[in-house]
Design a protein around this nucleic acid. Structure first.
Length: 277
DNA sequence: CGGGACGCCTGTGAGC
DNA sequence: TGCTCACAGGCGTCCC
C-alpha cells in the first residue's frame, strides 16, 4: 500500500499529537515481519520525541523518564499497513498487531498481510535500525540529490530503470505506482537499462519522480483498495494516475492502449508509444 | 558484486 | 452461490 507519500502523510498525521506523549504500555498482536526486539514493558514511561521518516520507514524516538536516550521504534507499513491515532480505541481487531498506548491516545498499527514491522533500536544509527536504513538511497527532495548525481548512480546499474527505481538505491520513495507514473511522465520506457539513460533524460526522470511524489502528497496519497490516512480519509491520487492500473485503457496523451508487463515480479503499466527506449 | 527469484501473509475480485 | 486462481501499494534474503 504505502509508498513515500502515504508514509509521509501518516507521519504528518501523528507527529504533532504524539510529540512529548508518554508511553503507558505496548500491546502486541500477531507477529509482524520482525520481532519488536525489546520487552514491551521496557517502553512504558518513555516519552516520544519528534517523529521522523527515512524512505518508507518512520522513526519514533523515545526518551527515558530521566531524560536519557531510550532509542526508538522503526515502523514500516509493508504492503497493507496503516496507522491510526485513537482516543477511545476499541478492542484490537484481527488485523491490529501493535498498540502504542500513550497519554495522548493509542497509536495502532493495522496490517492484514503483516509485511509491516515495528522494531525497537537503541538509536537510529545503531543496529537494527542502521541495518534496515543502511541501503537506502537519497531522499527524493534532498537538494543534494542533483541530476548529475542521480545520473551517475543510474550509470552503474544495468537493470531495467523500473527495477532500479523500485530498488531505492538511486532515490527512495517511489514504489510500484509512482515509479510507473514517473516513467510515463518522463517518457522513458520501463525496460530501458538504467545505464543507458542520458543526463538530460535522467534529469527529466528525477523531476518526474519529484513532481509525482509531490502531487501525491498534495492529493492525500493513493487509495487503491484500502489506504486511509490517520484520520480515515482516502487519497485522491489514483484518479489522476496516467498509467497505473489502466491496462487496456487509452493513453490520455496519445490514445494508444496502456500496456502491462511484469518486471521483478511486479506489474508495470506504461504507454509503448509515449515511453521510449 | 549485481541481478533476479523467492517468500513472508491475507484479502479481494474475476472467472468458471 | 461457491470455488479456484491471479494478483495486490514492499523488501530482506538467498542463489547464481
Amino acid at each position: 500500500m504505502p509508498e513515500l507519500p502515504e508514509v509521509e502523510l501518516t507521519r504528518r498525521g501523528i507527529a504533532k499529537q504524539l510529540e512529548n506523549a508518554c508511553v503507558r504500555s505496548v500491546q502486541l498482536g500477531k507477529p509482524l515481519r520482525w520481532p519488536l526486539g525489546i520487552a514491551p514493558s521496557e517502553l512504558a514511561g518513555t516519552h516520544i520525541g519528534s517523529i521522523g521518516r527515512r524512505g518508507k520507514y518512520l522513526w519514533v524516538p523515545l526518551t527515558a523518564s530521566h531524560g536519557g536516550d531510550a532509542g526508538g521504534l522503526l515502523v514500516h507499513l509493508g504492503m497493507s499497513g496503516s496507522l491510526a491515532l485513537l482516543q477511545s480505541p476499541p478492542p484490537p481487531g484481527p488485523h491490529d498487531h501493535f498498540d502504542l498506548v500513550t497519554d495522548r491516545g493509542t497509536l495502532r498499527l493495522n496490517d492484514p498481510r503483516r509485511f509491516g514491522a515495528v522494531v525497537w533500536s537503541p538509536s537510529r544509527s545503531d543496529d537494527p535500525a542502521a541495518k534496515l536504513l543502511r541501503h537506502l538511497g537519497p531522499e527524493p527532495f534532498d537538494p543534494e540529490l542533483t541530476p548529475s548525481r542521480f545520473h551517475a548512480s543510474l550509470r552503474s546499474r544495468r537493470a531495467p530503470i523500473k527495477a532500479v527505481l523500485l530498488g531505492g538505491e538511486a532515490v527512495v520513495g517511489a514504489g510500484n505506482i509512482y515509479a510507473c507514473e514517473a516513467l510515463f511522465q518522463a517518457g522513458i520506457h520501463p525496460a530501458l537499462r538504467a545505464d543507458r539513460i542520458s543526463l538530460p533524460r535522467a534529469t527529466r526522470l528525477l523531476q518526474a519522480v519529484r513532481s509525482t511524489l509531490g502531487r501525491a502528497l498534495e492529493l492525500g496519497g493513493s487509495t487503491l483498495r484500502d489506504f486511509k490516512d490517520v484520520h480515515g480519509a482516502s487519497g485522491a491520487y489514483q484518479a489522476e494516475a496516467a498509467v497505473y492500473g489502466r491496462e487496456g485503457q487509452a493513453c490520455g496523451r496519445c490514445g494508444a492502449p496502456i500496456r502491462r508487463l511484469t518486471q521483478a515480479q511486479r506489474s508495470t503499466f506504461f504507454c509503448a508509444s509515449c515511453q521510449r527506449r
